[in-house]
Simulated assay, not measured.
Amino acid sequence: MTTVPLLAIEGLCAAYGEAQVLFGVDLSVMPGEAVSLMGRNGMGKSTTIKAVMGMLPATAGSIRFAGEALAGQRIYRVAQRGIGLVPEGRQIFSTLSVRENLVATARGNGPWNVDAVYALFPRLSEREHHLGSQLSGGEQQMLAIGRALLTNPRLLILDEATEGLAPLIRAEIWATVRRLREAQLAILIVDKNLRALSELCDRHVVLERGRTVWQGNSTDLQAEFETVSSTLSV
Rank of each mutant, 00 (worst) to 15 (best):
Val4Asp: 15
Arg74Val: 07
Asn41Asp: 13
Arg127Phe: 06
Val114Gly: 01
Arg64Lys: 15
Val228Trp: 03
Leu135Ser: 03
Leu150Phe: 08
Arg154Ala: 09
Pro111Gly: 14
Leu149Arg: 03
Gly138Asp: 09
Thr105Val: 13
Arg64Pro: 05
Arg203Leu: 05
Leu27Thr: 04
Leu131His: 08
Arg170Lys: 15
Thr3Trp: 06
Asn193Glu: 09
Leu131Met: 12
Glu139Thr: 04
Asp26Tyr: 11
Val86Leu: 10
Ser136Asp: 11
Val205Ser: 09
Leu12Ser: 00
Arg64Thr: 14
Ile189Ser: 01
Tyr76Cys: 03
Val98Cys: 10
Pro111Asn: 14
Thr231Arg: 14
Ile189Glu: 05
Arg178Asn: 15
Asp191Phe: 01
Thr231Gln: 15
Leu131Thr: 01
Ala58Asn: 02
Ala116Met: 06
Ala148Thr: 03
Ala104Asn: 11
Ile187Pro: 02
Gly110Cys: 10
Met55Glu: 12
Ala223Trp: 10
Glu10His: 13
Gly54Leu: 04
Thr105Gly: 11
Ser28Trp: 10
Val213Trp: 04
Leu22Val: 13
Leu102Lys: 01
Gly84Gln: 05
Ile75Tyr: 12
Arg211Asp: 01
Val78Gln: 03
Leu221Val: 11
Asn152His: 12
Phe121Gly: 00
Arg195Gly: 07
Gly24Cys: 06
Met55Cys: 13
Gln184Ser: 15
Gln20Tyr: 02
Ile145Met: 10
Gly210Pro: 04
Arg123Pro: 06
Gly84Asn: 05
Gln215Phe: 11
Ser97Ala: 09
Thr48Gly: 07
Glu226Arg: 14
Asn41Val: 11
Arg179Glu: 12
Ile157Asn: 03
Ala79Tyr: 04
Leu165Gly: 07
Gly132Trp: 00
Ile9Thr: 09
Ala171Leu: 11
Met38Ile: 06
Gly67Glu: 09
Asn109Val: 13
Ser133Ile: 12
Ala15Thr: 09
Leu158Pro: 05
Leu102Glu: 07
Pro153Glu: 06
Ala196Val: 01
Ser136Ala: 11
Gly84Arg: 01
Glu139Val: 05
Thr227Met: 15
Thr48Gln: 03
Ile49Asn: 00
Ala186Met: 07
Tyr76Trp: 14
Met55Gln: 13
Gln141Ser: 05
Val206Lys: 01
Thr105Ala: 15
Gly44Pro: 04
Leu131Asp: 07
Arg179Asp: 11
Pro111Ser: 15
Val206Ile: 14
Ala166Gly: 05
Val114Trp: 07
Leu22Gly: 06
Thr227Cys: 12
Val86Ala: 08
Thr95Ile: 03
Leu85Arg: 05
Leu124Lys: 04
Val228Met: 08
Gly210Cys: 07
Met142Ser: 01
Gly11Asp: 15
Pro153Thr: 08
Arg107Phe: 14
Ala171Met: 09
Asn41Glu: 13
Ser36Lys: 05
Thr176Phe: 00
Asn41Thr: 13
Leu143Asp: 00
Leu124Gln: 02
Gly72Phe: 07
Glu139Trp: 00
Ala166Lys: 05
Ile63Glu: 01
Ile187Glu: 02
Gly61Asp: 02
Arg170Met: 15
Ile157Gly: 04
Trp112Thr: 04
Leu149Pro: 07
Ile92Met: 02
Leu120Lys: 10
Asp220Val: 02
Val29Cys: 06
Cys13Gln: 14
Leu188Arg: 00
His129Arg: 15
Glu88Phe: 13
Pro5Gln: 10
Ala79Glu: 00
Leu56Trp: 07
His129Ser: 11
Arg40Gly: 04
Val234Glu: 11
Val35Phe: 04
Arg147Leu: 09
Phe121His: 00
Ile169Met: 14
Asp159Arg: 01
Ala183Lys: 14
